[in-house]
Design a protein around this nucleic acid. Structure first.
Lengths: 119, 119
DNA sequence: TTTACATATGATTAAATGTTCATATGTATA
DNA sequence: TATACATATGAACATTTAATCATATGTAAA
């Protein structure tokens, strides 16, 4: 084995070690699946509109439908998805149900995305 | 108009003003559409796996396919989407093309999402 | 300039997903 | 308790989208 081959071999070994490290640092598929599911929820313009509308204040279903010019049914369906993903919480007041963002993470993620979009 | 009606009227007016404010603070549909499109890109487990693998180091197409047990074609298709959304950049070195995350925003968004998932 | 290697791309197919429509459930009021 | 109001939900349909297969493009080495 001459010098040149030696250098090549070492460089390859180094690369393999790197790939091994990447392999190790990669989170479990399950976690990455959940992460993708989370972003998927943000990845629909109707849902983003709804989330954004709730950025500062709680809103009831009819408020949202009226504000965003969406059908009551559509809003309700989407809110169910947002509830399931723990992005919004809600409380009943008489006949109405008021929805609001569940925690600061939701606001942070939206803000972070907005920064990237506004570039 | 008696006192009670007056109070009701005022409370309604207040609510209308609130809804008006929400209406005004809502970004243009176009921006919210772009924002949703951005999150949609993060919202696929294959793409998230690819992005995560590149978290620390640049990788070529074959590296990614090998690491994540994906077809070359599938990886290439997804990388095209990531390129189009400006989430990854790339450089050619000989026959290989090395991809890496485009900026810190990408890392931030993934990290932020990860925090929410790991709760 | 062939040949092999690395990546990209177009077409097709199957699965996932959002909206609509109709209807059900739940709550307050006459 | 009958009626109206607010929200939720199931089924059907149309659209979007990711994976695959076949093939094209681009680059380096023999």
């Amino acid at each position: 084995m001459d010098m040149v081959e030696n250098v090549l071999k070492d460089s390859q070994t180094e690369r393999n070690e790197l790939l091994h490290k990447v392999q190790e640092q990669q989170p479990d598929d399950e976690i990455l699946y959940d992460l993708a599911e989370l972003f998927k929820v943000f990845g629909d313009s109707t849902r983003i509109k709804i989330l954004y509308a709730m950025f500062e204040h709680e809103l009831c279903v009819n408020d949202i439908a009226g504000l965003l010019n969406l059908s009551q049914s559509s809003v309700s369906h989407q809110l169910r998805i947002l509830k399931t993903s723990k992005l919004v919480k809600f409380r009943r007041e008489g006949k109405s149900i008021y929805y609001s963002l569940d925690d600061e993470h939701v606001r942070s993620i939206i803000s972070m995305g907005m920064e990237h979009v506004e570039e």
